[in-house]
């Protein structure tokens, strides 16, 4: 319990420090937040135009795609607001900046991830919440949306960590980490059924968009306890798995067996 309290205190203070640091540059904060909202709106225009021309896509209508965007945006936003270094771990590893966290008596992954916030992610978060609001959901639907945003945050963050952890095992794999991140986001933002049936198993395994958005969408259309249970289990599983892989990689980092190239 003491350990839990200690981590909760660290999380609270890290978040407060991150926010305070971001607020040191208010103009930059606002520019980044509104810029990201604008960025996301461009895609809404694209989808509106496309659906007007094409009708539905793989059984998905405009509202369905907006739901995908809303959940992904909020999950991505929360992930990068509270775990700002989640997609920067490979850079920290490569530059030896993980040493600072290794010298402190806290879990390295947790400490490293929470010591930064991405300002533009606040824009993603706001955008997602407003977008869902525009879909005019019932009051009860908000509970489901927030619940799946939380599970989506965990699954998405875990996927990023899994990708970034590759750098602990193979040098020069930062590009692959970036590709993993791009793939998970791409597949989470497009209708599931436009993709060939033979590849959809990927969305429930190595690139878990299924647990981030497709199952929540199914829940939104027809609520089911089974879906909620599966998504919760998956979120816990991916989270734990990511921590395990990172810890295993950290042992290699400590053993200096991370093979590094010298020219």
């Amino acid at each position: 319990m003491d350990r839990l309290n200690a981590y909760a205190r660290l999380f609270r203070l890290s978040f407060a420090a991150n926010l305070a640091a971001a607020m040191e540059y208010r103009v930059n904060f606002l520019v980044q937040v509104f810029g990201m909202i604008l960025n996301n709106c461009a895609f809404i225009v694209f989808w509106k135009v496309l659906f007007r021309r094409a009708g539905n896509l793989g059984g998905y209508g405009f509202r369905d795609v907006m739901f995908l965007w809303a959940i992904t945006a909020v999950a991505f936003g929360i992930s990068h607001v509270v775990f700002g270094n989640v997609r920067n771990l490979s850079v920290l590893i490569k530059q030896g900046d993980l040493d600072v966290y290794l010298l402190q008596p806290k879990d390295v992954l947790f400490n490293a991830m929470t010591s930064r916030t991405i300002v533009s992610a606040w824009g993603d978060m706001c955008f997602g919440l407003v977008l869902f609001g525009f879909l005019r959901p019932e009051a009860s639907a908000w509970m489901g949306f927030l619940f799946f945003s939380a599970t989506g945050t965990l699954v998405l963050s875990a996927t990023f960590v899994l990708g970034e952890s590759l750098t602990l095992f193979v040098d020069g794999s930062e590009g692959l980490s970036q590709s993993v991140a791009e793939m998970i986001l791409s597949f989470s933002l497009y209708p599931e059924k436009v993709f060939p049936e033979g590849m959809r198993w990927i969305f429930y395994s190595i690139l878990p968009s299924g647990f981030i958005v497709f199952l929540p969408l199914a829940f939104w259309r027809a609520p089911s306890v089974g879906i909620a249970a599966w998504v919760t289990l998956a979120a816990a599983g991916y989270g734990f798995g990511a921590w395990l892989l990172f810890s295993a990689g950290l042992r290699r980092y400590e053993s200096g067996n991370r093979i590094s190239a010298r020219s």
Binding site: A54, G58, G175, S179, E182, M183, S186, F187, Y190, V194
Partner: peptide, 26 residues
């Protein structure tokens, strides 16, 4: 040359995704 892998993967991914979208749209 290893640094070219990133842009290739990104482009390949986008082309694949949009190929699927156009197939569905038509």
């Amino acid at each position: 040359p290893a640094e070219l892998v990133g842009p290739c993967v990104t482009l390949g991914l986008f082309v694949f995704v949009f190929s699927c979208i156009w197939t569905s749209a038509f």
